[in-house]
């Protein structure tokens, strides 16, 4: 694993990276253990283990229905796992361990945990009734209590960073899909998260718009952000990932550096998948 060597290029991420009081030096930022989840009778996650170290980029690959998105959504407790746990910075996400049980946390505690995790969705999910800058400042103002003016300044910096300076007062509907997704990234970064989750960020985009979004994600990776990315862009995984995890049928089938997993997968199912998509 090569993540530790990444320099923290961008000053904006400084705070997020320094908040490592709870973690020991080599304790991963994210630890997933024995995660299980079913919908109805259908098992989606069947005992998943995953480690993501500070500053690392982990790419989740696998056929549709393999549980990639569900795993990602369990990390910030948008889905409640049926078993197992997710730990972020030494804290169990969504639960409190006491007396041999995991008690579900009150919403305001979950809210606090979520504010450290940024998430970018396949369908962007920008708030259509708010302008671009209102989308970005909403969470810092209402969750952190940041003064509106300071939040707006920060938002402008972030929008410039994703290449959208000057579009602050547009409504989402007036932007292309690629621009909307870049606003969504800026919106997630506004909370200065320690971890970013990307759920197929380019799957809903026209082909010519994929590049501009991937470029922003790549820059973010280079700046040292810890990220978990679900994607079908194998080229992107090869270039940016520190670890590639291949899921199938709700289990981790293959895990390792991209040059190993992508070029010489050991598992038959992974070999077939990469043969089909590469």
């Amino acid at each position: 694993m090569t993540g530790g060597e990444r320099p923290a290029l961008n000053a904006l991420d400084g705070d997020a990276l320094n908040g490592d009081a709870v973690n020991g030096a080599d304790r991963p930022l994210v630890r997933v253990r024995g995660l299980r989840k079913s919908f109805g009778g259908h098992v989606v996650l069947d005992g998943v283990d995953l480690d993501v170290r500070e500053g690392e980029v982990t790419v989740l690959l696998g056929p549709s229905g393999s549980g990639k998105s569900t795993l990602l959504r369990c990390v910030n407790h948008l889905e409640k796992p049926d078993g197992g746990f997710v730990e972020l910075g030494g804290e169990i996400v969504g639960y409190r361990a006491s007396g041999g049980r995991l008690h579900e946390l009150r919403p305001r505690h979950i809210v606090r945990q979520r504010s450290r995790i940024g998430m970018v969705f396949q369908q962007f999910n920008l708030f259509p009734h708010l302008t671009v800058i209102e989308n970005v400042t909403e969470a810092p103002v209402s969750v952190r209590g940041t003064p509106r003016k300071r939040a707006a300044e920060h938002a402008r910096e972030l929008l410039a960073r994703v290449g959208l300076a000057g579009r602050e007062d547009a409504y989402p509907r007036q932007l292309s899909g690629g621009q909307q997704q870049r606003v969504a990234i800026a919106r997630a970064l506004a909370m200065e998260p320690r971890l970013m989750l990307f759920d197929e960020p380019t799957s809903a985009l026209d082909p010519e718009l994929v590049g501009e979004v991937l470029a922003v994600v790549r820059d973010l990776a280079l700046s040292g952000m810890t990220m978990i990315v679900v994607t079908h862009e194998i080229g992107f995984a090869r270039e940016v990932a520190d670890t590639v995890v291949f899921l199938d049928g709700g289990r981790v089938v293959e895990s390792g550096p991209p040059e190993v997993v992508l070029t010489a997968p050991r598992h038959e199912r992974a070999r077939a998948f990469f043969a089909a998509v590469l």
Partner: peptide
Amino acid sequence: VDRGQTEAAQALGLGRSRVFRRI
């Protein structure tokens, strides 16, 4: 209202009443 709106607001860390009133 699309379910994704609530999820996006929750993922940002907005509280429940805030999600309802503002989003």
